[in-house]
Amino acid sequence: MSPPRAQRLGVAACHLCTLVSDAPSNAHARCPRCGARLHSRKPASRSRTFALLCAAILFYLPANLLPVMRTSQFGHAVDSTILSGVMAFWQAGEWDIALVIFIASIVIPCAKFLALGWLMWTTRRKHTLGRKQRTLLYRAVEFIGYWSMLDVLVVGLVCALVRFDLLGRIEPQPGIAFFGAVVMLTMLSASHFDPRLIWDDPEHD
């Protein structure tokens, strides 16, 4: 027997200050403590998450296809994409760096897409299996979100440092902007997802 749910008890927690108060009777109820709007669940959580996830996936294509960085040495410019950079490091024998970049820029974003997509699909279908694991997965996605910014940081850093004009110069390319957008959109998407939806029971609705 599971403990009673907040919805059944007619209470809701404020999203901002987490004060538990009476459940709103209409859409315009506000938290008595902080004045934020009261919702029993994040409003339009699924559709917002889904919309942002779609935008992220759309941006993920140019982020990987367009070059992220242009390395000029003695006037000879070479554009590199994320994947070509990983391969260059791998072929140069720097397999550890290659692995870090590969995980941070390819595995994690893809894993986030899959995780969020699966979470949304299961909550829509109101699956009851593996609720705890799914919640853990969501927490993991939320936690790991900003680690994907590693690439953007690296590019920003080396572009700022390597400016020797003719000898060597690194310039950012449009790909990195798309990649940054992907990371931000996935983070927003994850933040719009309400994990309580995982626990919502279909028969008590």
């Binding site: 935008a55 759309l58 140019p62 719009h192």
Partner: peptide
């Protein structure tokens, strides 16, 4: 009407298409 959040993926789609 669908939520205003859908403007974001629409914009992304437009940018991708234009490219």
């Amino acid at each position: 009407l669908p939520s205003a959040i859908w403007i974001v993926p629409l914009l992304a789609l437009l940018i991708g298409l234009s490219m």
